[in-house]
Design a protein around this nucleic acid. Structure first.
Length: 222
DNA sequence: AGCTACGTGCTT
DNA sequence: AAGCACGTAGCT
């Protein structure tokens, strides 16, 4: 739920074109090429200009990201998307906050964003069915395949909690972004740390999400 | 059906 | 080793 909510907001604003006065970098540098859609296509637009803004700087753990959010907006400590939303409404663009929540229209946009959501959200809620991305990683629904001997190559999924996973925007400038059409790869800055490792690697199993403990990630959000 | 992005083989 | 390109799993 939140996930959708979250991304939705982001989208909304972006699309809304609203008049957000001007967040620092709001320059109009939109990506010429990828306008369409990569996951948060919108994000791309901004992201392009400054891959690092939005608190993405990975350098030291994204706590930064969260922190950043917090620092701005009077320490409300909201994730970037939310922040945007707030501003939008403030600007007068969106009068109805409710709408923000409603908008599921976002539709596809970001498969990953969802994941973020999945991984993080409330530990408590934990919808059982909530599919795959458990922090642990490979929680792929066993579902299909399996039976027949064919060890179908299952795709691993992003952990959703590492820095890159939490990153919301595509830098738009890395090779992956630039070669999106042919490369079919996620932005380098968003490539899950876990997926960078060898599949079998490690052992067995639990990969420790580098930093933020699962679910804890967004606790502050609630 | 269409999209994103993981896995992998080839090329540089 | 790194990057590119392609096939396709997984999801909407």
């Amino acid at each position: 739920s939140i996930a959708s909510f979250y991304k939705t907001n982001v989208n909304m604003n972006m699309n809304g074109t609203a008049h957000h006065h001007s967040m620092a970098p709001s320059n109009g540098n939109f990506l010429p090429a990828y306008g369409s859609g990569a996951d948060c296509g919108i994000m791309n637009k901004q992201g392009h200009a400054h891959p690092d803004m939005m608190g993405l700087s990975e350098g030291g753990s994204f706590n930064g990201g969260g922190v950043m959010g917090g620092s701005f907006l009077g320490g409300l400590g909201l994730p970037p998307g939310v922040i945007v939303m707030a501003m939008g409404s403030a600007g007068g663009g969106i009068s109805d906050a409710g709408s923000a929540f409603q908008m599921t229209g976002g539709q596809r946009a970001l498969t990953d964003c969802q994941q973020h959501t999945n991984s993080s959200p409330c530990p408590s809620s934990s919808s059982p069915s909530s599919s795959g991305v458990t922090a642990g990683g490979v929680a792929l629904s066993s579902s299909s395949s399996s039976s027949s001997g064919a060890v179908a190559k299952r795709k691993r999924k992003r952990c959703g909690v590492c820095g890159p996973c939490r990153r919301l925007i595509n830098c738009g400038v890395c090779s992956s972004c630039r070669n999106r059409k042919t490369g079919h790869q996620i932005c380098k800055f968003r490539k899950c740390e876990e997926l960078k490792k060898k599949p079998g690697g490690g052992g067995g199993g639990l990969e420790r999400p580098p930093s933020v403990p699962t679910g804890e990630a967004f606790r502050w959000f609630f």
